[in-house]
């Protein structure tokens, strides 16, 4: 009986709070534009060399933070390896095992030892870069806290995809020889005219791998951050605390989903890199 009364009291307090929230008008509408969050203003102005602008902006700082986290993590773990793993070491071993057996081991037929460092490096870099994008860091305008991910920038993901692209052909040429590698793009049993056509189609598909690999990561992170930004700014957009409260619950769900997406995108980037490099090493024809 007593517990029921307490429950009813809680319910009443909650309802009153909701009613009050519905009555109070929301905050003054400030100018809010999600696209503004992704503009890159230089933090430190540096002279540009030719067409290359060397100014330090948000994306550069995020890349530095990612690198620093990875280096510190690697050094700390390498120094403190024990036969009986601590909880932290066990977690890192699980992720390492995912990169080693889940990505490289399950996709590549040969060259696993040679190409594991690159693929694991790309995996960890994209993973950490995606995850720190979900932590508010004070690099937004006027040193405000804001969400940004280096991988939500097309140039960063394009550079990463270019690494995979170059390494794919480097691996294929080194293993098979220059002419044998490019001849291996089309089956040798096909008639000559058809073979040339297949070569052209294969070359186009190789070029589109570069586009899809970079745009996939970029668009996923950009879309995720844009949705998060819109949900967080709901109080400004709807000018009502009630709507804001309801939508904040949605934003928690989206935040959790974004953590999942950060993992999945790093996994997909690494596994597609492994597929491409493995395909160049072991040509089917």
């Amino acid at each position: 009986m007593n517990r029921r009364l307490v429950l009813v009291a809680y319910l009443l307090v909650g309802l009153v709070a909701l009613a009050v929230l519905a009555i109070i008008p929301g905050g003054e509408r400030e100018e809010f534009d999600v696209a503004h969050e992704f503009e890159l203003q230089p933090i430190v102005e540096l002279p540009s060399i030719g067409p290359v602008d060397l100014s330090i902006n948000k994306a550069v700082v995020y890349l530095w933070v990612t690198t620093a986290i990875l280096v510190v993590l690697a050094v700390v773990i390498a120094r403190s390896i024990k036969p009986v793993p601590s909880r932290f070491q066990y977690m890192m071993e699980t992720i390492y095992d995912l990169a080693r057996n889940g990505i490289v081991g399950s996709v590549m037929k040969s060259g696993q030892v040679t190409w594991f460092p690159y693929i694991a490096g790309a995996f960890f870099f994209v993973l950490v870069s995606n995850l720190i994008g979900l932590v508010p860091l004070p690099f937004a305008e006027h040193n405000q806290f804001g969400f940004y991910a280096a991988t939500a920038n097309l140039y960063v993901t394009l550079a990463l995809a270019l690494c995979t692209f170059l390494f794919t052909h480097y691996a294929g040429i080194r293993k098979n020889g220059f002419f044998r590698y490019f001849a291996g793009w089309a089956p040798s049993s096909a008639p000559p005219v058809l073979r040339q056509l297949i070569l052209v189609i294969h070359a186009v598909s190789e070029a589109f791998r570069l586009v899809s690999l970079s745009v996939r990561l970029f668009a996923n992170m950009l879309a995720g951050h844009a949705i998060l930004g819109v949900f967080f700014a709901m109080a400004l957009i709807f000018q009502s605390y009630l709507a804001a409260l309801a939508l904040q619950m949605g934003s928690v769900l989206i935040y959790l989903f974004e953590i999942f997406v950060a993992f999945i995108q790093a996994f997909i980037f690494a596994i597609l890199s492994a597929v491409y490099i493995g395909g160049a090493l072991d040509q089917e024809h």
């Binding site: 996939r216 997909i268 597609l272 597929v275």
Partner: peptide
């Protein structure tokens, strides 16, 4: 593993 590769390609 193969499902994730397929998801990556389809999602693109």
């Amino acid at each position: 593993t193969n499902m994730f590769i397929g998801i990556g390609v389809t999602e693109a």
